[in-house]
Design a protein around this nucleic acid. Structure first.
Length: 99
DNA sequence: GGAATGACATTTA
DNA sequence: CTAAATGCCATTC
């Protein structure tokens, strides 16, 4: 299984209305490749299968999105996540894989 | 096999 | 506190 595939697998576990960080994902994989995580999303092989939009920066900042940041914001708000100044309140919506 | 790239994070100014 | 520079991992050219 490739690294990116693992990322996708974890992303599917994220509940609706919650978000996580690239770092958290990397940590869940027992790795520090948060860069690679974002890269995996960029490939977007499993775009419709995986909620890539539920992944944000460490401080809740919306780093980017393959389909456009605007679209990402929209999707998150649809799920009940409030976005302020292109940022998310991690205190409220942060989801930890907590292994 | 080596160099370049990116949806990041952390440290320093 | 905000902005800029540096380091990092895996993938791709």
């Amino acid at each position: 299984m490739d690294f990116n595939q693992k990322c996708y697998d974890l992303l599917i576990l994220i509940p609706k209305g919650k978000v996580t960080t690239y770092k958290e994902i990397a940590r869940a994989l027992n790795s520090k490749a948060y860069r690679a995580v974002g890269n995996a999303m960029n490939k977007n092989e499993n775009a419709p299968k995986v909620p890539c939009h539920r992944v944000v920066g460490s401080n809740g900042n919306l780093v980017g999105y393959a389909y456009g940041i605007e679209n990402k914001i929209k999707l998150l708000e649809k799920e009940g996540v409030k976005i302020i100044n292109n940022k998310i309140d991690l205190k409220k919506y942060f989801f930890s894989f907590n292994k």
